[in-house]
């Protein structure tokens, strides 16, 4: 497994660059990663990440956008605005979770 190091913090990733070990994540690391993709991690950006962390802790899988709406109560439109392009993948990466695999 490849290891990424950013500003002295290291974490293991799969061949696409997604986290493989959720325990290697913390919010400081997330802030550094966010800067790489041009995201400024304010409270609005952090809220969905925190939900994803706690939800995946019980389910064992990275939640899909649909689950973030249905269970987390997040507005899909807002998520797309916060993380334009590929919201589910960006959020999974910034939350230190595996690549999302759900279809919906």
């Amino acid at each position: 497994m490849p290891t990424n190091v950013i500003n002295g913090r290291s974490f293991t990733v799969d061949e696409e660059g997604f986290f493989t070990d959720r325990s290697e994540w913390n919010e400081d690391l997330a802030h550094d990663l966010a800067a790489l993709i041009g995201v400024d991690l304010d409270e609005a950006h952090l809220a969905p990440l925190r939900f994803m962390r706690s939800d995946s802790e019980t389910t064992g899988t990275t939640p899909t956008l649909r689950r973030m709406q249905a269970v987390g109560g997040f507005d899909i439109k807002t998520l797309f605005a916060l993380y334009p392009g590929k919201p589910a993948k960006k959020m999974a990466w910034l939350a230190g979770l595996r690549k999302p695999v759900g279809c919906v």
Partner: peptide
């Protein structure tokens, strides 16, 4: 997968840092 080519100023990335392909950015 994408390799970061230009990290922001002051950022230190390891050789071969793998960034998932988000379809934008660097």
């Amino acid at each position: 997968m994408t390799t970061v080519t230009m990290p922001p100023a002051g950022y230190e990335l390891s050789e071969g840092f793998i960034l998932p392909n988000f379809g934008d950015g660097m």
